[in-house]
Simulated scan of single mutants.
Amino acid sequence: MNPPSFPFAAVLLAGGRSTRMKQDKALLHWHGQDLWQAQMHKLQSIGAERVLLSCRAEQPLFASDGVETVHDPEGEDKGPLAAITRCLEHVQMPLLVLAVDMPWMTAAFLREQLHKHTDPEKGWFFRGPHGDETLAGLYVPAMLPQMREALAHEDLKLQHVVEAAVHSGLAIAHPLADEQMSFFHNANTPGDLK
């Protein structure tokens, strides 16, 4: 399959504190490698012009050649909204986001969505029974003012940002089909990975 019709970047979000997992999710073993490496391989295979790794400076994650590392500022814990905002400011182009704790997401599914989406000015997300899936979707630079405003007001819920973007026409929310639900499952506890 050819690359999407517009240039985009991709980022793996791996800087979470993993409190429920009681160990760093990024370092869990998944099919013979660390989970973060498995997720990174997916992003590297979908035709992104730039690939980023977003993590904390103290995490022992060593990105391969061609992967840009964007560290969380020391002492800051403003969650994925701050990390995505930083990365989007860094690349200034459509940014595909994937959380490290979504091991069932496939490169084929992401590639398919990128091919279907032809408007680089609009983000896209999937809306499931619990609301918008914010940690596997396409963020665009036009969303940055809303993201910065949310950070300034300490409203760190990504769902609020995505809902506002959809409401203002900056993003599209696709209904999540039953057969797509499993891609968006999170691994929050060791039992989830079994």
Score class of each variant (00 low, 15 high):
R20A: 04
W30L: 00
D24I: 03
Q113A: 10
R127K: 10
Q92G: 15
G16R: 00
A82G: 11
K22I: 04
Q92S: 13
I46W: 05
V166G: 06
L81P: 00
K42H: 09
P175L: 09
L176G: 12
G191I: 01
R50F: 10
H29M: 10
D24T: 03
N2K: 15
G15E: 00
K157P: 04
V91F: 08
R17T: 05
G75W: 02
A165I: 01
P80C: 13
D132K: 01
P7R: 05
A83R: 08
S182D: 13
G128D: 13
P145S: 12
A83P: 06
A107F: 06
L27G: 01
A150P: 00
L81D: 00
V161Y: 00
W104S: 14
L96F: 12
A173C: 07
L114W: 11
S168M: 03
L43S: 03
R17L: 06
A9L: 07
H41D: 10
P141Q: 04
A142C: 06
D24Y: 00
T118F: 09
M181K: 15
A99G: 14
G137P: 07
K157L: 03
D132W: 12
F183A: 10
E179Q: 11
P4N: 07
E49S: 12
A142I: 10
L151S: 04
H115W: 12
P120C: 00
D192I: 09
V140L: 08
G15Y: 00
L98F: 14
L138P: 14
K116D: 14
L114M: 14
F8N: 11
L144W: 04
E112H: 11
E112G: 12
G79E: 01
Q33H: 07
A99C: 12
A9P: 08
L95R: 09
E89P: 09
E89M: 10
S45G: 11
V100Y: 02
Q23H: 02
E89T: 03
E76Q: 05
L88E: 12
A38V: 04
C87I: 06
T106V: 06
M105V: 09
A142G: 15
V162A: 02
L96N: 11
F62W: 06
Q146S: 12
V166H: 10
R86Y: 11
P3Q: 15
L110T: 07
P3D: 15
D132S: 14
P103H: 07
H174K: 08
L53N: 03
R17H: 14
Q113I: 13
M181C: 15
H153Y: 00
Q37K: 01
M102I: 15
S54H: 11
A108V: 11
L81E: 00
P60S: 11
A136G: 05
L53K: 07
F126M: 02
M1K: 14
A10G: 06
P129V: 14
A164M: 01
E163L: 03
A152R: 07
L98H: 09
Q146K: 15
L135V: 06
P60D: 05
V166L: 07
H185M: 08
E179M: 14
M105W: 04
A108C: 15
L52K: 04
L158K: 00
H29D: 13
H160K: 00
L114Y: 13
E74I: 13
Q113W: 14
A108P: 10
D77M: 01
S64K: 05
F184R: 12
H185C: 15
G15S: 01
L96P: 06
I172Q: 02
P94S: 08
L176K: 10
D178M: 09
M21D: 09
P175D: 08
